[in-house]
Amino acid sequence: MTVERRGSLSSGFAAIGGGLGIVLLLTATTVVLSILAAAPLGPALGDAFGRTLAGDHVIRNHPLFAPTDVYDFLHEKSDAVGGAAAATRWAALLILLQQILFAGGIVAVLGKAGGFTAGEFAWGVRRNAWHNLKCFAIFLLLGGGVIGTWVWGTHAFAKRVFESSPPGSRGPLAFRITVILVALLLYAIFSLLHDFARAARRFDNSVGALRSWGRARRALSGRWTRALGLFFFWLVLGGVVLAAGFSLEWMSPAVSAVAVFLQILLQIAILAIRPVIRVAAWGSYLALYDLTEAERIPPPVEPTEPLRAETLEDHPLL
């Protein structure tokens, strides 16, 4: 495979442009699954809001009437709300599966010189599907086990040690913050190992899940600071952009038809933030992985032309 050589951070930004198709695919999948999960609410909203003044009160945020109307909707249409909640749980399962599978396509094509085709992406998805499912299972067992043990253990410890501490005292607060930060760090570590294990299929289509985790560990060895830096960079950048978009959407009143339409576009744009960041993070990780892979496998030696004995043909007689 021929890959473009860049710094891992710039590779991340470059991946957004290069992997625009993947961004669109991830966004579209989210939007479609969200609409399907929300579908049970459609008739209920039409009935409760579309054919009564309740919709008018709520969209105009009537100070006295809107809250009661919203409550009555949630109460009287609880079956529809419950249906949407159940559909959301199934959609969550599907999107989890989709993420696991799409990762196979991403590691196969992202950062590839000269771009990629949908067929190549699909080939990657298909080729790495089983491998990625096994990698996910390992991630869930290892990461869940370690982080769960950490959180449960520290909770039990805090309960015993800080039980008689007055509320607001600094010790328990500092301890809680430490627990959260360490849990986040552990999550980052396992998440990176998981991504790097999947990236192992980039150059070796036959590597197994367990070996790829071992390879990921070796690849990250000596590069943890850089890898974690990348992880937190994308986490913070994504968090900030997402928070800004979320606030903008939350605060926009959107009453007129045009405003409602624009708000829907804004919602789609916000739902695209996470795919952009995910593809960018993949771009960074793969660039880092490619670097380690390049060091591990020495570059092929350029074949030299064999010496030939000169003949008279090379020097034609004058």
Binding site: T30, A37, L53, G55, D56, F246, S256
Partner: peptide
Amino acid sequence: TASRRAVAKYFSKAAYWIGL
């Protein structure tokens, strides 16, 4: 009245929250 628009708005809002 804006009741019809409310259906579009709150359906998309619900889908958006589910998407998040």
